[in-house]
Design a protein around this nucleic acid. Sequence first.
DNA 1: GTTAGGG
DNA 2: CCCTAAC
Length: 662
Amino acid sequence: MVLKKRFGSRTVSFEAPVVPRAPRSARRRGHHSKISVGKQPCPIELLASLAGKLLQESESSSASNNASYENDLLCKDGVKEEKQHVDKPLKVESPEQESCKERTFVVQCVLESEDQKRKLESQSKAESDHSVECTSVISGFVHSDKGRGDTNPALFNDVEGIRVESTSKSIFKDLWKGRNIAAKYDGMKLQKPLCRDPSRMTYFSRHRTDTNLFGRDDDEKFSRMNKCSNRLKSFRYHQRAGDHRIRKLLSSKCWKAAPKLKDFECSKADGDVKPILISYKRKAFHKWERYRGDCLYKKRKLFDGSSITTTDVVVSGESNSNLPTKSVIADEDIPVEGGIASSISGRQASLQVKDTNVKFSIKSFKIPELFIDVPQTATVGSLKRTIIEAITAILGSGLRVGVVLHGKKIRDDGRTLLQSGLGCQENLENLGFTLEPTLENPHRTTVAENPLLTASCDAPDQLTSVCEANGSEIGVLNAAANQPLLTDASDHIVDNTPEKIPTLPDSLADNNLPDCTAIIPLSAVHMEPLAAVPINQKNKRPELSQRRIRRPFSVTEVEALVHAIEELGTGRWRDVKLCAFENADHRTYVDLKDKWKTLVHTASISPQQRRGEPVPQDLLDRVLSAHAYWSQDQGKLQGKHPAGLLKAADPSADEGIRAGST
DNA sequence: GTTAGGG
DNA sequence: CCCTAAC
């Protein structure tokens, strides 16, 4: 219910002002013509034509479309109808194949290289089949543009897994093209069985999103779609979230895929697409990147959730879409986002911004510090998993986006970019985005209230989240945060998806992580969406008690310890300390006691099970001997000279030490 | 402040 | 290594 309202509001806001639509038929025509042309320039023309049509339609069709859409959407089956209603003009009805063709077509126009074209085509085909992930990937991009939130985490995952890297270029192209296509696809999507499959749904939704870019109709459709079925809702919902996420992608330094994408965009999309988009006042496309935890994570201990709080964004805000570098960016479809925003926050102000698009180039986000405590003996693989878990947990539901301008946080989410001073480049240069842990949890709450807002949080996906900066929407991550922020236009909550979250755990779950301890709230991952309290919970330790740095005992130290214990016995740790580690300030008698404990354990397990710097077997033997000796009270009874006993217990262990002791 | 143990 | 209970 809420959704509807929001959607409705959103839609309304969108349609009216912002984007003019051309009749879908017109759009379609445009596509065809373009298709026929098959040239790159075509896209622009198409876009232009579409825009015009959209504009025209927007007035008349938006209202009607919405209603019809919703109705149609109510039923999955209704999808077809939906198509007709919505898309008819454009597509009238396109069998899947047609849609594919169109899509392909569009792609071709965009694509510079045939290879890319081929890829796209293949992708489009795959999409039609619903089978291919690649397609989903592409669509993902497209959707991401919208910021619709259509993005489905799952999709992203798929996308990532599949091809993000290889097809990134094509994807980008698709993005902006996709919009046109999207309209067509919408119908298809709905009709297709895809609905059954969430991922598929996502796929569709993406398209939709794209479509929306061109016309508001799509948005409406989208909302309608949501109404259709819970699944749909959820998916889209997720998708949206994903889109937002995507938009807001966290770009990590390590991001592998990013470069390609970026480059791609820069090379092509920007030039061709943007102009068009701009004319339409819609974003050309969004870049999304996949977030890789490796880079960002710090191995540290978590002091306090609060401490973690902010991360600075490395971001650079650029007024324009050039993304020379990396990541993310965004275009803004004001309309779309505005719509989203409105839906989410009920804010319509965004519409005002529509005229002027502000592009944000978020080169990278700094992720809040993650404190991960992992034993030295842990494997690199376990470390990675631990980090991923931590990241997942945070991204899943524990982050919100903050906007920092000139070092100041812009807390008023209700303000427009203009009002916030984000309208001009100068400020953009001093603009930063932060990822902050969300203190509040209740994603659920959020979700309940705003289904739309809830986005799925697949861990991986989330990671992949895109960063987008729109005029209206800036932050995308975190629903939890959003909730409170309903007023925010700028923050769209994109991230959390409870549903998806589970997936992460699975992957993560298989831990081989022996001792790895992630101090981060991994719980979030497993938890239902949100319930969790992500970051905060785990910070049990007060900041005050910072954990000491880990200082593994060297063999020399071990030897000294063993020697001391052989002579002094266990239970006299203070003496041991004074005797053997008096100068080692970092070794307390408690440490020595602990070390002895671990030594005893180590000596009792098979060498294969031992981790860390290997301790000579002879030392371990001595450990066992001493341990046996002193643990039997013999040492105690006999006094402080275990040597004899030690020898008896373990002849091999005998050493000079005993001699000394003796 | 030390010890002993669990975490 | 941390934290604590028990001395």
